[in-house]
Amino acid sequence: MEGSFVNIFIKAAFIENLVLMYFLGMCSYLAVSKSIKTAFGLGLAVIFVLAVTMPINWLIHEHLLSENGLFGRDLTFLKLILFIAVIASMVQLVEMVVEKVSPALYNALGIFLPLITVNCAILSGSLFMVTREYTLGETIAFGLGGGFGWFIAIVALAAIREKIRYSNVPAPLRGLGMAFLITGLMGVAFLGLMGIDPAALQ
C-alpha cells in the first residue's frame, strides 16, 4: 500500500508531469519563469496549494457530493464550482502568508500569485483525482507529486532562461518565444521517462 503512494508521487512528478506532458498551468509557468528566485517561490506556492486543496476537494467530493454522501444525492455537477471555491480560498491564504513572510517575493510574483486560483494545473489535479478514483492517501500523494513536478519544471525553465539571457537569440524569438521553444524541447527530454510503470516493479 505504501508502495503505491510512492508510485503515484513519482508518476505525477516525473513521468506524467503536469506541465511537460499535459501542458497544464502554462500561463504562470511561462510568465514567472524569468528568474530562478521567483520561479522557486511560485513553485513552492503551487506545491502547497495542490497538496492542501486536493485532500479537501476529495473530502468534499466523497462526503458531500457523491450519492453516498451527506445529502444522499448525486451532486457531482457542482464539483467544478466547489473545487474552484476551495482553491480560491487556499490561494487567498497563501497570498496573505507570502505577503507577510516575503514582501519581495510577493511583489515579484505580482498578479500571478492570485492567478494560481485559475492555474489549470491545480484544478486538473482535483479533476484527475475524480476520474482516476483515488483514495485519500493517493490523492495526497498525487497532489504532492504533481506540485513537485510543476516546481522542478518551472525552476529548470527559469535556470535555462537565465543562462540564455545574454545569448544572441533571433529578435522575433526573444522572451516568450524562447520560453515556448524551451518548454517543447524540455517535453522531448522528459519523453524518456514516459512509459516507465513504477507499479510493475512491486
Partner: peptide, 21 residues
C-alpha cells in the same frame, strides 16, 4: 522502460535540461 531500447540519449537530454539548474 519497455518503450525504448536504449537510455543514454534520453538521459543525457534530460540532464541537459537540468544542467543550468
Amino acid at each position: 522502460n519497455p518503450a525504448y531500447p536504449e537510455g543514454w540519449m534520453l538521459a543525457i537530454l534530460l540532464l541537459n535540461t537540468f544542467s543550468a539548474t
